[in-house]
Each structure stands twice: as C-alpha cells, then as structure tokens.
Design a protein around this nucleic acid. Structure first.
Lengths: 348, 348
DNA sequence: ATGAAAGCGCTAACAA
DNA sequence: TTGTTAGCGCTTTCAT
C-alpha cells in the first residue's frame, strides 16, 4: 500500500482534506473534537504530509543547499557542522553536495538551485574563481559565496583573509632567518590557493627574495590533500639545496610534508621548519605542534548560514542584498616553525 | 520575475508543455528542429525543471537522507564522504541531518522519511538502541540502519564488530600485563558504547579481573568527544591508584586522554598506556602513535549507500529485503600501548 | 511528432 | 468551524 495521502486521512476521519490540512498548519482554527478525530485517523494510517507537495504549493522547502569542493578532512567537517548548527536552530535542513572536481560544476549547481529544491545556497567552489565568469547562471535564489572573488555583486560574499594570513606567516618564517623558503601551494585555478600564494610572494618579494620570474623550484604544487603535501615535500627534499623552511598552503599538506621530512630523517624544526594554513584540529596534536594560520572555520560556517537564512526570510521583495564580509586570519605560532614551545618567537 | 516554468518555455517556443517536458525526459521522441527551438527558449529564459514538481509526479527525488548523531570529528567526515561518493556515482544526492542529541529523534526521522523528501534513508542513531522499540514508525521507505541492534528485521542492518574489537584490544592490554586497566566508555544508552564496554568486560572477566559488580572506579564515562576523554582521564588520574592502562571507547576520547596524561607529566606508554577505537586519521599522527581498533569507516559508508540504492532501485514490489551485515574490526597495534615502534608486540 | 488533459498531494482563498 | 476549489509545475497516457 502506497503511503497515505491527505485524502485517505480525510476520508477516514470523515472530514474534508482542507480540515486535515488545517490540523497541521493552523491547529487552532479547528475544533478540538475534529482535530482529535483527524489526528487519530492520521495516526492509524501512519500519515505524514508529503513535503514534495507542500513545497510545490508553498514554494519553499526549508532546505538550504551546501556545495563544497570536497568532504574529506577536518576543514569541511567543521564547516558543515557549524552550518548545520545554525540551520537547525532556524528550522532548516541541509542538502549537501560536492562539486566532485570533475564534471562541470555549474551543471550541478543548476540542478539544485534552479530547481526549487532549496531555498538558498551556500557555495564554496574555489575553482569557479578562475575563468568561469559569469560563473553562476543568473538565478533568483539567495546565494552565499565562500572564498570567491567578488563578482558583479549580486551575491553575499564571505571571505577569509587568505592574503594577509599567508603574508604574515611567510614574514614570520623570514624573520627566523630561514633560507631558502619553499611553498607548497594549492591547485591551479583555485582561488584560495592563488591568494595564499600571492601573500607568500608579496612577503618574499618585500625581502628581495624569489623575485618575479625567478627561481621556481621552491614553489611546489599540491591539491590540498595530505598525500599531495607528502609528495611535494619529497620533491623539495630532492633538490640540490633543499629548503630550510616550507610553507604549505593548508594544514593537511603541511602534515603530509611533516611525514615526508621525518621519513627523510629530518628533525623539525631544527633541520627544516614547516608551517601550514587553516589551523585544523590535528595541527595542535602532532609534535612538534604545527605553526599555522588560524582560519575561523566555525565562524565562517555560522556566518554563512546566518546571512543566508536572513536573506531567505527577508521578504522576497528587497531582492538580493549583496554584501562582502571579510573574516580575519591570524598567526598561530607553535613549534614547527622553530619558536620555542612556550610560544616565544625569535623575532628578527 | 519568478523563476520560469515549463509554461513559459512552451509559450516562448510555441509548443505545448508536453513537448517541453519530452525534450527533457525523452529527447529522441521529439523532432530535432522542435527540440532546438525549445532548448533555445529554455536557455533564453534560464529555465530549469523544478524538482519539487517533478518529485510530486514521479514519486521520487533521487535523494537519500543521512541521519547521524553528529557531524564533528573525522569519523563522520569520512562516513559522509564515502556515502556521498557512491551516491554520486548513482546519481543521488545527499540530504544530511543530525539527530542533534536533544529533541525527539524519531520526530526528525518522521519529518524527513514519511514526507517523501528522500527515496531512502541511512540512519545512525545509536541511542535508538536503548528503549525506543519500536524505534521507527512503520514507514515504507528503504532504510539502512548503522550500528543498531537488530530489530524485527524489516530493515537492512550494517554493523561494525564492536564487541570483538573491544574484546581484542582489551586482551592485548592485558597481555602487556598492565594492571589496573581502566576504560573510558561512551554515553549511556548508546549502543556502540554499550557493546564496546561488553567486549571490554568480557576480556577482563576472562582474566578474573573486574568481576561483575566489582570495582567501578576504573570505568569512566565520556560522550565520545575529545574533551570528555580529557576530563575522564583527569578523574582517573586522581584515583589513589591510577590505572596503568586506559582503553577509550573511541579515538577522540583517547586523544583527549592523551593530553590529560601528558599534562600530568606522564609518559606514554612508559607510565600509562592508552588505546582507542575507530582508527581515525589522527591516530597515526600523534606521537606516540595510537594503538586502536580499526573500524572500516569507508567501507561502512560505501556499503550503506550501496545497499540502500540497491533497494531503492529494485522494483518496489519485493518489499523490504532485510539483511544483516557485520563488518569486521581489527587491532592496529602502534606505540601507545607499549609495543615497540616497529609494531612488535610483547605478547604475554 | 505533438497536443490536451488528468492527475501527483497539498495549501489557501473563498464560500457556506 | 468546515468544505469547495483552484492552483503549484511537471509527467504521462491518450488522442490526433
């Protein structure tokens, strides 16, 4: 037997479907006796309103879509957790998708967005930053873009200060006097990766190092996974003059680099210093603890959900209320850079 | 302007809505010229079929619901990742929810399940194991239950061999000759927690230790979070005779215990041995590396998605095809238990 | 190859 | 307070 509909309940309770509907939507507008009758019938039939039908009529789903570049690792885990937390508070559910790297992301976006499955969308697709402008099909759905370069301003942008974070940590490494300093950057065409590299480059150039068009052997490329960091570090270590310090564009790669260095019998930070980016949980679990750039992941997720829901709930009239938010990053000096365990830096 | 409907496209293209629909559902059944016309119109209007309406008619959504007890930590992160991976392969999307501990879970389940939002459900709600029998409202929706005691057999059950894992690792600790051995178990009423404790108890009892009704000071309780493990360890360490070894019911708590022990100036494993459960990623990142029980998380997630989709796709006639699957666990001997780094155990 | 029309299950005027 | 009815946007016979 197919799942019961409002019809079935109405019949069984001997009322009209409208009444049944009311029992669920404005219980007070129906006489108690009737309500009981309906509820009993519903109970007996094991009835629950079909959300699909409801959505069709109401033109909303109370679901917010979240599209991320991936799901693995602590970064996304925490991001999802924080989004879910505030979504839940506001009665929203989460529909999760990843852009799965391959396959045209925009296609995926369309599938979800245009289609009225979700009331709004949180999007983190760093590769969109590259050439896919206009990246998003014009669609009238509230959208929050995470870590994407500003578009023509019809969305809400929330960014993390990648540039400054990378700049600062590179300076810190420079202040230690390390040379050469290598960077393991993220994938090509990834906006985060590119911004972080720019910060690195700026700090280096400021010191007259690594000038434009200069030596690129100390610039390795990974894909933000631990394994890629491991591999990149291996390549770095096979250089005629291995780097004295390495800045990895995220903690996962930094940890990969950690293992590679250790496997080569190198002591960290005595023989090679390592710094990361993100400040995920493990960063403080490994030893030596990882010096990194703190990214307010939780805040990012909560803010994204908050802003999105705000827009969703605001009367549809005042269309998109674009805004740009920049979350600041900050240095987390720990041991892997060569600072003492107590956190005292050997400033230049 | 509201998002365009099939109507708008039909008008613009000068055809009937049926034709437009066909263009999307059986492209071959429409003349190429017409198809182009429609596609062009759709393009111009930026049209995309509304899934809600589609779902209403088709009675399916191609979405599978996933309900977990929480989202934080690597365990869930990896579980979600693996579920998503196979779901994606089969053209399904993920709708994620957590039972958020508080609030009647069953309520949440109902909201999603009964309501035709999802074509199937993967459920991991360990607290259901306790008294909520019948835990699930009878609903004709394919459901895969993760780590839950077998019900009256109308669902697919996938379990991880918690008992054996806990039993084995406890034996291992016993083989080291440690005494006393404490356990930091999971929360009350949590099926995983309880099964793991049983395994622990069985091994202990086998050696004549910790007999039934005996000394419970060595049995602490956490809630599977790192922090709770930390706190529990602190309590353990304040005992007149602190434990010589501690088995935490999951790695997160084990790591919390790690920090607590270290903070007390204790060397691991020389002064206190620690073992965990789950074999999450960090377990091998900390030092000393954590001896633990390997749980095939990825396999669990993939299997769950696979089985679920299998049932969803099977003709609805052959109703539920209940089955019970047990995924085996295994010891991962590393350093924190006192075995040498090379993995050679000091067997009794 | 295309169109007309009947639902899918529900909500929300509008009547009564 | 309750019932009637017109959609919501789409798929799918059944005609043409």
């Amino acid at each position: 037997m197919a799942s019961p509909t409002i019809q079935d309940v109405a019949e069984k309770a001997g009322v009209s479907i409208a009444t049944v509907s009311r029992v669920y939507n404005s219980p007070n507008s129906v006489k108690e006796a009737t309500r009981d009758k309906v509820l009993r019938a519903a109970e007996a039939l094991n009835y629950a309103p079909k959300l699909a039908a409801r959505a069709l009529t109401l033109q909303k789903t109370d679901i917010i879509g979240v599209i991320l570049p991936g799901l693995g690792g602590e970064f996304f885990s925490e991001l999802i957790r924080s989004i879910d937390q505030v979504a839940y508070q506001h009665g929203f559910h989460i529909m999760l998708s990843t852009s799965h790297s391959h396959r045209n992301e925009v296609d995926l976006l369309l599938r979800l967005m245009g289609q009225g499955w979700v009331d709004g969308l949180i999007l983190m697709v760093p590769v969109l930053g590259r050439l896919s402008m206009p990246p998003l099909p014009r669609i009238d759905l509230p959208i929050v873009l995470l870590n994407l370069p500003e578009t023509n301003g019809q969305y809400i942008h929330i960014n993390v200060d990648n540039y400054r974070g990378a700049y600062l940590i590179t300076k810190h490494l420079l202040d230690h006097g390390y040379n050469p300093i290598a960077m393991i950057r993220g994938p090509d065409g990834n906006h985060d990766a590119e911004t972080r590299e720019k910060g690195f480059g700026a700090a280096m150039t400021e010191r007259g190092l690594n000038p434009e068009g200069g030596d690129n052997r100390y610039l390795e490329r990974g894909d933000f996974t631990r394994r890629s960091g491991y591999l990149a570090m291996l390549r770095l270590l096979s250089l005629p003059v291995p780097p004295r310090a390495v800045f990895a564009a995220n903690d996962e790669m930094a940890i990969g680099a950690f293992f590679a260095a250790r496997q080569h019998g190198l002591r960290i930070p005595e023989q090679i210093a390592i710094a990361g980016f993100d400040d995920i949980d493990v960063a403080s679990c490994i030893s030596p603890t990882l010096t990194t750039v703190h990214v307010p992941i939780t805040e990012l997720g909560m803010m994204a959900a908050q802003k999105l829901i705000e827009v969703i709930k605001s009367t549809k009239e005042n269309g998109a209320m674009p805004q740009k938010i920049l979350l600041s990053t900050g240095l987390v000096i720990r041991e892997s850079c060569g600072c003492s365990p107590t956190g005292a830096a050997l400033q230049a």
